[in-house]
């Protein structure tokens, strides 16, 4: 059983502490929504969990059957969708998906790519350059890249940002389906997104509580 343990996690940028002493554990099939005002460290917490940032104090550990996974072991099973992540704008959507699959050690066929794009509502747009995508389409494509991995750990920062109502529905369906078998962490201030998680972690001094 895959498990995430966050122990006494803290992050400082220079003299300023973003947060300190955050601890929680999640197992496959459990989900967490991180909320809090702007600047409370929601995105920083997600980046620390993914290993894209190094903590100032505390630890983030992924374990499977009590055996600790190193970065290369857990990154293969982790996918992140976030506004600060970019895709290759001079490649088409299909080329982006093919690249991210192959570089991660998987070969995908064209019909798999088309099906994946249809799943996020981008049918017929596979051969469009990403530079021509709107911000909402780009957000959908990021979900397609994340789903390529069939991830056991799904981390989403601002899940519905830039999306229209149809897009929000698609994304909430994706997250809801993933929750059953994966560790899902979302950072959001949208109350409509709270039902996507079992627990809520309020940053900015409010602590963590079950919902």
């Amino acid at each position: 059983m895959l498990k995430l343990d966050v122990n006494n996690l803290g992050k400082r940028f220079g003299a300023r502490a973003v947060f300190e002493d955050i601890s929680f554990s999640l197992e496959c099939g459990q989900s967490l929504a991180v909320t809090g005002p702007n600047g409370s460290g929601k995105s920083t917490l997600l980046r620390l969990i993914t290993g894209l940032l190094v903590p100032s104090s505390g630890k983030v550990n992924f374990t499977e059957n009590k055996k600790k996974l190193d970065f290369d072991q857990y990154r293969k099973r982790l996918a992140i969708v976030a506004p600060y992540l970019s895709l290759y704008s001079s490649l088409t959507a299909a080329e982006n998906l093919k690249f991210f699959a192959e570089v991660d050690g998987r070969r995908v066929e064209r019909n798999d790519i088309d099906n994946l794009l249809a799943e996020v509502g981008l049918d017929g747009r596979a051969d469009d350059f990403v530079s021509a995508y709107s911000s909402g389409m780009l957000q959908r494509l990021k979900y397609a890249v994340a789903l390529l991995k069939n991830p056991d750990i799904l981390i989403v920062d601002e899940p519905t940002v830039n999306l229209d109502e149809n897009g929000k529905g698609i994304v909430r369906d994706i997250i809801s389906a993933r929750r059953k078998n994966a560790i899902v962490i979302i950072a959001t201030n949208e109350k409509e997104d709270y039902p996507l998680a079992d627990n809520i972690c309020q940053l900015g001094g409010q602590g963590m509580g079950g919902r």
Binding site: Y88, K98, F99, A101, V103, D104, G105, R106, R107, D112
Partner: peptide, 27 residues
């Protein structure tokens, strides 16, 4: 999604091909 795995050399070539394609289009 059904996928087959690719070896290390194909993964390296994916990076080269991506950079070549990007370079060809942007110079």
């Amino acid at each position: 999604m059904p996928t087959t795995s690719v070896n290390w050399a194909v993964r390296v070539w994916a990076v080269v091909r991506k950079d070549l394609t990007t370079e060809f289009r942007t110079r």
